[in-house]
Amino acid sequence: MEIEILTIEYGSKEYFDTLTLRNEVFRKPYGLDIKDDNLEEDKDMYMYGVYIEDQLIGTVFLKEKNKDTAQIKTLAILEEFRGIGLGIYIMKFIEDIARKKGYTKAFLTGRVYARSFYNKLGYKAISEPFDYKAIPHIEMKKTL
């Protein structure tokens, strides 16, 4: 199984493919639709698609939170590809990108059910759980 992580350009066909994937992973299970989201900030992010045999199976985005901190966003993996270590692989990839861009810290807002996954990668909670789109989330941070 060969994994490729490719840069996604805002507005490209591949970008619209990420919308479909993100909708499947993040919105449909909760009766929501990504078409209802304001996705304007996507154009200001570094976006990456994760491919296996030319099939988009995941995404991860990166943006600047402040001069020292990169914000990791939109880690999404299709359900049938979870549990095989891809999440760790993708997070290490995006953390390396953040380091190369000069960031010394990483910040993310993750779903509460994924907290232990992020803890294993060295992230620490910096907020109490809160609801975002009626789904419990938590803010987490890590020194890179």
Results as ranks from 00 to 15, higher is better:
residue 1 M to K: 15
residue 2 E to P: 07
residue 3 I to M: 11
residue 3 I to S: 04
residue 4 E to N: 14
residue 7 T to H: 13
residue 9 E to P: 08
residue 10 Y to G: 09
residue 10 Y to I: 10
residue 11 G to V: 09
residue 15 Y to H: 05
residue 15 Y to K: 10
residue 15 Y to V: 04
residue 16 F to N: 11
residue 17 D to G: 04
residue 18 T to R: 05
residue 22 R to L: 06
residue 24 E to Y: 10
residue 26 F to C: 04
residue 26 F to Y: 14
residue 26 F to S: 06
residue 27 R to F: 05
residue 28 K to W: 09
residue 29 P to R: 13
residue 30 Y to P: 01
residue 32 L to V: 04
residue 34 I to S: 02
residue 35 K to A: 12
residue 36 D to M: 13
residue 38 N to W: 07
residue 41 E to C: 09
residue 44 D to A: 13
residue 45 M to K: 14
residue 45 M to G: 02
residue 47 M to W: 06
residue 47 M to C: 10
residue 48 Y to G: 03
residue 49 G to P: 01
residue 50 V to I: 15
residue 53 E to N: 15
residue 54 D to Q: 14
residue 59 T to P: 00
residue 60 V to G: 00
residue 60 V to H: 02
residue 60 V to Y: 02
residue 61 F to H: 05
residue 61 F to M: 05
residue 61 F to A: 03
residue 62 L to A: 12
residue 62 L to T: 06
residue 63 K to R: 15
residue 64 E to K: 14
residue 66 N to S: 08
residue 67 K to W: 08
residue 68 D to N: 13
residue 69 T to C: 05
residue 70 A to I: 01
residue 73 K to G: 00
residue 75 L to T: 00
residue 76 A to S: 15
residue 77 I to M: 11
residue 78 L to D: 07
residue 79 E to G: 15
residue 79 E to H: 15
residue 81 F to I: 06
residue 88 I to M: 13
residue 88 I to G: 12
residue 88 I to W: 11
residue 89 Y to V: 13
residue 91 M to Y: 02
residue 94 I to E: 03
residue 98 A to V: 03
residue 98 A to K: 01
residue 102 G to M: 08
residue 104 T to K: 15
residue 106 A to D: 02
residue 111 R to V: 08
residue 112 V to R: 10
residue 114 A to K: 14
residue 115 R to F: 13
residue 117 F to L: 13
residue 118 Y to Q: 10
residue 119 N to V: 12
residue 120 K to Y: 09
residue 120 K to Q: 13
residue 121 L to P: 01
residue 121 L to H: 05
residue 122 G to H: 07
residue 123 Y to C: 01
residue 124 K to A: 06
residue 124 K to S: 13
residue 125 A to W: 02
residue 127 S to P: 05
residue 127 S to Y: 03
residue 127 S to E: 04
residue 128 E to Y: 11
residue 129 P to W: 12
residue 130 F to G: 05
residue 131 D to R: 14
residue 131 D to P: 12
residue 131 D to Y: 15
residue 132 Y to F: 12
residue 134 A to L: 09
residue 136 P to G: 06
residue 137 H to R: 09
residue 138 I to F: 08
residue 141 K to S: 04
residue 142 K to V: 01
